[in-house]
Design a protein around this nucleic acid. Structure first.
Length: 508
DNA sequence: CGGGTTTGACCAGCGC
DNA sequence: GCGCTGGTCAAACCCG
């Protein structure tokens, strides 16, 4: 990754905002960091090193700067030594990060290609070799420390996720227990519910089974507790559970403006049917995943009757096979949403999600408990939503131009709009006349808040939407003829039969 | 010729 | 029980 060109661009201190630099390895981030610091007076732990070794036009200046470099390093020998001694246990600190800048530069230096090396060899000396070797050693050690720090941070994040998961699980069990307490004092009801939840939201035993079936090599065998999360993203536990218990399948519906007939979600689909659904002249197409034999994931694609520029894609089930990154985004979204939805709607009564509690008009996600499938709808068509979607004909724009912002944007937005400010219960949601079947508002809030605050869900949602936007906008192979979707219904007499209109609704 | 699409037929769930 | 509706099947068809 460290190429001479990058070293040149850096040392020249004229780095443009070349897109490559944003995707360089970690030391490129360090170089940017250092460059920013070098524009001002260097911080105490920063070794300012504005050298252009590789610029033959400034050979004189180069040598001077080389001397300055070693002079500077001699000013900080103890720092490097201390750093080496502590690198095994310490967590990365900002000061240490600044040290990485030094290493980055050295790494660039030692990583020269032959052409670059020829420039440096002209002035090479035994002492220079030794010093270079020393600094290379420091570079490697710094990298090791950085990796250790990264590992430490990942472990902390992992522990936090585990903690949140356990807390959510316990809280859900408590909610179920409280709900069932009046009906069944001995608690058998709540126990059953927890067991049912385990079917929909995988238990460890089932997760282990899924892990054995999975071919993904990214499983972290050291972190047993993370399995439910990992599993929930990539396996077909929901479908499996549906075979074992009469649990309604959760669905995730995505509403997005798209001229294409389908959204590009990274998966391979085969159309197996088309139907005119009641109340919508646009035909509904049925697809199933063909990326693996036996994958039970299906999706339905249909134009919105009110606004035919809106494409409604409804996913059901989880994939039972590894997915490409592009498909993983959507799969994670649907799986996370479905899993959370099922977790929140597990009680057998239909009114668990309660009545329409909030009159907010800004809808980003809609939860519907209407039979037969609980559905969460992710509405990406709202221009007034917190994300301020902008739309040019046929595609979304600015908020998604930088995919790296998506997790933060969505996570923050969803979190800020938790407590239902961004979630609105579907108006077609069934309300229960039995008070005992209503979820207490606090519990309901917890359920949806957990959904919106779930970093796994929000991140996956962000990635999925990014995938949708990129795929939808770039899906040149999709049929962009909207009229093909707006099918004519030659036999649409309002009394539905099995006749499917001979529409031009083309699949992919 | 293989894979995907189309489309009429079939089935199951639900309400009346 | 019957009709309506959603969902699926599978043979015919299309296409590269």
């Amino acid at each position: 990754m460290s190429t001479p060109s990058t070293g040149i661009s850096f040392d020249s201190d004229r780095i443009t905002s070349d897109h490559r630099h944003h995707h360089q390895s970690e030391f490129m981030d360090s170089t940017r960091h250092n460059r920013s610091s070098s524009s001002h007076s260097p911080p105490p732990n920063t070794i300012h090193f504005p050298v252009n070794y590789l610029n033959p036009d400034k050979s004189d200046h180069k040598r001077i700067n080389e001397v300055d470099f070693f002079k500077d390093t001699k000013h900080y020998p103890s720092k490097s030594i201390n750093y080496d001694l502590n690198c095994k246990e310490e967590i990365t600190t900002p000061a240490i990060d600044l040290d990485f800048n030094v290493n980055t530069r050295l790494n660039l230096l030692t990583g020269n290609t032959s052409s670059d090396q020829s420039v440096i060899d002209d002035c090479i000396s035994p002492s220079y070799e030794n010093k270079r070797a020393n600094h290379e050693l420091v570079s490697v050690q710094a990298k090791l420390k950085r990796m250790n720090g990264e590992n430490q941070r990942l472990r902390e994040a992992l522990n936090q996720v585990i903690h949140n998961y356990n807390a959510l699980e316990n809280h859900l069990a408590m909610m179920i227990h409280q709900k069932q307490g009046g009906e069944n004092p001995n608690g058998e009801g709540s126990r059953k519910q927890v067991m049912d939840l385990g079917l929909a939201h995988p238990s460890k035993a089932e997760t282990d089974k899924n892990l054995q079936l999975s071919t993904s090599e990214e499983r972290n065998h050291d972190e047993q507790s993370t399995r439910p999360i990992l599993n929930n993203q990539n396996t077909g536990n929901i479908d499996q559970s549906s075979d074992e218990a009469p649990i309604r399948k959760a669905r995730v519906s995505v509403r997005a403006r798209s001229e294409a007939s389908v959204i590009a979600d990274g998966c391979q689909w085969r159309k197996y049917g088309q139907k005119i659904a009641k109340g919508n002249p646009c035909p509904r197409a049925y697809y199933r995943c063909t990326m693996a034999v036996g994958c039970l994931v299906r999706k339905q694609v249909q134009r919105c009757a009110q606004d035919r520029s809106i494409l409604i894609t409804t996913y059901e089930g989880n994939h039972n096979h590894p997915l490409p990154p592009a498909a993983m985004a959507m799969a994670s979204t649907t799986s996370s949403a479905a899993g959370m939805l099922l977790s929140g709607s597990m009680p057998s009564s239909d009114g668990y999600l309660g009545r329409n509690l909030l009159p907010f008009s800004s809808t980003m996600a809609t939860i519907s408990a209407s039979a037969p499938h609980p559905t969460i709808t992710l509405d990406l068509t709202q221009s007034q939503n917190p994300l301020q979607f902008q739309r040019s004909p046929g595609q979304f724009q600015e908020p998604f131009s930088n995919p790296t912002h998506l997790p933060h944007i969505f996570g923050q937005s969803l979190y800020n709009h938790s407590k239902f400010s961004g979630l609105q219960m579907s108006e077609n949601m069934e309300t229960s006349s039995q008070p005992g079947q209503l979820l207490p508002p606090a519990a309901l809030t917890d359920t949806v808040t957990a959904l919106t605050a779930d970093p796994n869900f929000t991140a996956a949602l962000a990635a999925a939407i990014s995938s949708i936007i990129g795929g939808g906008a770039g899906g040149s192979r999709e049929n962009n003829n909207d009229e093909n979707v707006n099918a004519t219904t030659s036999n649409n007499n309002g009394h539905g039969n099995d006749k499917v209109s001979n529409s031009g609704f083309q699949g992919n």
